[in-house]
Simulated assay, not measured.
Amino acid sequence: MSRGVRRGAQAPAPVPQEHGHGGPSIMERFKRMAPPSFKGESQPLLAESWMREVEKIFRSIRSVEEDKVSLAAYIL
């Protein structure tokens, strides 16, 4: 298979960053990442681990500061 044909057949569609561009909303993208739910852990290490995992998701979906509160509230 030639490189040009392969590229055309498998070129990934750009992922829109904003809901207004016809792509998935920030909440939909967040849910797709299967965020861990917080179970009210009283052990600091478990709570910090949860927070690190959620922050990784925030970075990967490129969420803005204003969205982080509502996204985190969804899983609390």
Rank of each mutant, 00 (worst) to 15 (best):
E55F: 15
P24L: 07
F30P: 00
H21D: 10
P12W: 09
G4C: 03
G20M: 09
I57F: 15
L76R: 13
L46T: 14
Y74K: 11
I75P: 02
F38E: 08
P12M: 05
G20V: 06
P14Y: 09
G22Y: 13
S25W: 09
W50N: 13
P44D: 04
G40F: 09
Q17C: 06
V64Q: 13
Q43G: 07
P14H: 07
A73Q: 14
P35E: 03
I61D: 06
G20Q: 02
R32E: 14
M33H: 14
M27S: 04
P44H: 11
A13N: 07
Q17W: 01
P35K: 03
S60G: 03
F30M: 06
G22F: 04
E28V: 12
F58Y: 14
K31H: 05
D67V: 01
A34T: 01
G40M: 15
D67I: 04
P35T: 02
Q17Y: 01
P35L: 03
K31P: 00
E18Q: 12
I75C: 12
E41F: 15
P44M: 09
P35V: 10
R62K: 11
K39W: 14
G4K: 09
R52G: 11
Q43C: 08
S37F: 13
G40N: 09
P16L: 05
P44V: 10
G40P: 02
P14W: 03
F30C: 00
P24S: 08
H21S: 10
A72M: 09
V15L: 06
R29M: 08
Q10P: 01
E18Y: 08
G4E: 03
K56R: 02
E55M: 09
V5T: 08
M1P: 04
A11M: 08
A73I: 10
F38L: 12
S42W: 10
V54G: 00
D67N: 10
V15N: 03
E55Y: 15
E66I: 06
M27A: 11
G4A: 10
M33P: 00
S25F: 02
I75F: 15
P16Q: 03
V69Y: 15
S49F: 08
S49E: 04
G4N: 06
W50R: 13
A34S: 10
M27I: 03
Y74R: 12
E18S: 07
L46Q: 11
I75H: 01
E65V: 13
G40C: 12
K39N: 15
A73L: 11
A47Q: 01
V69F: 14
K68M: 12
A73E: 07
M33W: 05
I61F: 13
S60C: 11
A13E: 06
K39I: 10
S63C: 13
S2C: 09
F30I: 00
P35R: 00
I57A: 05
S63N: 07
S63L: 01
L45V: 13
Y74Q: 06
Y74W: 12
M27H: 07
M33C: 09
P36D: 10
Q10M: 05
Q43Y: 15
L46C: 12
K39Y: 11
P12R: 08
P36C: 05
G20W: 02
P35F: 02
E53A: 11
F58L: 06
R6W: 09
A73W: 15
A73M: 13
A47R: 15
K56P: 05
